[in-house]
Amino acid sequence: MTRRFESGVIFIARIALAVLFLWSGVMKLVGYAGFVGYLQSKGVPLVQIAAPVAVAVETLGGIFLVLGLKTRPLGIIMALYTVATAIMGHDFWNISDAALQHDMVIHFWKNIAIAGGFLLLFVTGPGRISIDGARAPRSGLGL
């Protein structure tokens, strides 16, 4: 595989991850009161801080992913955020309804898989089709 091809694949992966978070962040912002109510129903502490942080992480994180800006640290932040939302938002172990529990299990493991994608992005970097890639020297791996 060529570095150009690898960079193209990494760019597509960044876009795929970004779409989910951009859409989710904007929907949280548009329905902010409902989102705050949801966090309260889940027993999330410090909702007044957690809600705007979640909107910012998802929206800004999505934008940074598209641009390929600060990609490696963003990969760690987004992985941690995604695992935290899996634990707090998809707590299947607290649900007794079998159908709802099944859905929450799927959503929980989906979040864990997405976190794995962010960890891969942390390791691979953003590829050359990115702001980070444009700033990087062309020696070494250069992905």
Rank of each mutant, 00 (worst) to 15 (best):
V9N: 00
F11V: 06
I12W: 07
R14Y: 05
I15W: 04
A16T: 06
A16M: 15
L20Y: 03
F21A: 01
W23G: 08
W23K: 09
G25C: 10
M27C: 01
K28Q: 14
G31H: 14
G34L: 12
G34H: 03
L39I: 10
Q40K: 13
G43P: 01
P45Y: 10
Q48L: 12
I49M: 08
V53W: 12
A54I: 12
A56K: 03
T59R: 09
L60H: 00
G61H: 08
L65R: 06
K70R: 13
K70W: 15
P73D: 01
P73L: 01
A79S: 14
A79F: 10
Y81Q: 07
A84L: 15
G89H: 05
D91V: 03
W93I: 11
N94F: 02
I95V: 15
S96D: 15
S96Y: 08
S96F: 02
A98Q: 14
L100I: 07
L100Q: 14
L100R: 10
M104H: 12
V105P: 01
V105L: 11
I106H: 09
I106E: 05
I114G: 04
I114Q: 03
G116D: 03
G116Q: 04
G116Y: 11
G117N: 01
L121K: 02
F122L: 07
V123I: 10
V123Y: 10
R128N: 09
R128M: 06
R128Y: 03
I129W: 14
S130H: 09
I131D: 00
G133F: 04
G133A: 06
A136V: 04
R138V: 05
R138N: 04
S139H: 13
S139E: 13
G140T: 08
